[in-house]
Structures are given as structure tokens and as C-alpha cells.
Amino acid sequence: MAALASTESLQLMLQVTGLSMHFPVYKGLMRRQIGEIKAVDDISFHIMRGETLGLVGESGCGKSTAGRALLKLYQPTSGRVELDGTDVTALEGEDLRRIRTDMQMIFQDPQACLNPRMTVGSIIAEPLDEHTRLSRRQKRQKARELLDAVGMNPDYENRYPHEFSGGQRQRIGIARALALEPKFIVCDEPIAALDVSIQAQVVNLLEDLQQQHQLTYLFISHDLSMVRHIADRIAVMYLGKLVELASREQLYQSPQHPYTKALLSAVPEPDPEKEAIRERIILQGDVPSPANPPSGCNFSTRCPIAQEQCMRETPAWRELEGGRYIACHMVQ
């Protein structure tokens, strides 16, 4: 966990203002644009240095797209992303390439994100080839150190990814993300593809590395219990928009947005006695298509407390007491 007490950690690391990522939809012989998918629609938040912000939501809500747009892996439609004071969205070419050393990503599928034809050592050293002028020996030394840092035997450097299990491959992915000593890492569902007993190992590793290297994480996940463990603050996303952002204690003890409430009540608890007495909010229907979102509040079609106003007006993203944010007409 981040030590928020020290003065340095109170600095702003990432400031996101009105970020949108819309994908055009083309159809017909002339490939005319007939609409757009608002994968991420006007989201704003900030992350402090050394902090972990959890980003949760169901599949298709745009959380991975948001993570990629932050790193400028996509060109955002509008909005501004400032990393440590630098406006990332405005950068291009060589300047953008330079700042990439500060921001890295850990991917969901450890099977797909490692090149099967490269040895583990060369996978980890590849960012160094691209961004540093280290000699071959120095790079090899660095790769061995990184393997050691993620809890693997440095002598594995000449092996290939298929020789490792899912958890070990995820460790290799983490070592590669650390190679350039970034300040900010987007963890895109890093434990979703792993077994329960391996998930805890990887989460503990991520927390240890955060302490050693003063890292700032955006932790994208759909596992609400794991996010509760790792994140300091949590943002909840629904259909391209943020609906609630609060500290861990606030969000889990007194969720305000009706979607957050439903989401938390849907998480099964490993305790039969609690399960038997639990009040569950069962949402009706499915998430609407982002190509054709409902008018007004995006959640209004499934919301148990929606009023006429919710169908008409989009709720504003506003700050409540205690540093929490919400977008809902019904919450005072």
C-alpha cells in the first residue's frame, strides 16, 4: 500500500480532464460514417503519486479503452491527460516516444502479450533496446535483475514463454513493464486470467514493487473484492462514463450510486451464512449498446430508482463531501 503520509506522495501524478474516446462506425458501399461508439465519454479524475486508483466496471463499459487512451495508445477524441505536469495528449513523434518510458502497461492475457519466439531475457530487454543506450552486457544484467525482482530465477533468461505457467508469464510481463523504471503503470486486468491461488501472489508482488519503486497504478479490474484490497480510491464505470469515485472505505461501506450498490450486492461472498441473509439487488436486463446509449442517464434503463428526470437529462459529474464524486440526479 502506498504510504500517503509522506509529503512527496501528495503530489499529483495524473490529471485526466474530460477524456473521450469515440470510435466511428462505417457502413455501406461508400463506407459512410453512420454513427459512433462512445467507448469512453467525458471522464475526469486524478491520481496522486504512489497511489493506486481502481477502475471497475462490467465488460464493455470502456475501462480498458480508457486505460489505453490514457497512455495514448489511442488518439483520444477530446480531453486532456497530464502525466506529472506534461500534457500527453498534445505530444507527438519523438516527444511522445520519450515520455513512453514514464508510463507502461501490464496486460490481461500473459499468453498473448509475450512473443513466443523470443527468450524471456530478450522480451524483458526489448524496451531497453528501444529507449536506452546500454551495452549488451548491461542490458543482460538489467534483465537478470528484473527477473529477480519479480521473484523468478535469473537463470531462466534463456527460456521461452511457453515453458512457464500463467502466473510466471504475468511476472515476466511485469518485469518488462518495470524495465524502463516508469512512474505510472496501467494494470489492465492483470489477474483476471490467473487461478485463485496465483492471483494473491501477483497482487502481493505488485504491492511490493509499488513500495520499492514509488509506482503509481491505475488498476483496471472487474473483481470488486480484489480491487478493495489493492486500491486506495476506486472509480466505477458504466457504459463509457464514470458514475462514482470514492475512497475504498467510502465506496464499500456506503455506496451512493444505485449502480455501485447493485454491483457490490452481486458479488458472491465465500460465506454461506452471510449469503443466506443477504439482500440482493438483481438488475434487470443487459447493458445497452454503447453505439446507441439511452437518452439522459446511461443507467436509467436498468436503474431501480430512476425518475422521469433521469430519462431526460444526463447527470453531471459532481463532487460530494469528503473528496468523493458521483453522477446521479437522485443522490443529494
Partner: peptide, 14 residues
């Protein structure tokens, strides 16, 4: 190893 959604939160996962 499973973190809970409402029990007390441990500093480190088992």
C-alpha cells in the same frame, strides 16, 4: 487467499 468485500482488510494477502 480470497479478499472479502466487507470483512476487515488485511495489509497483505495470504
Amino acid at each position: 487467499t480470497m479478499p472479502s468485500i466487507d470483512a476487515s482488510r488485511s495489509e497483505r494477502l495470504y
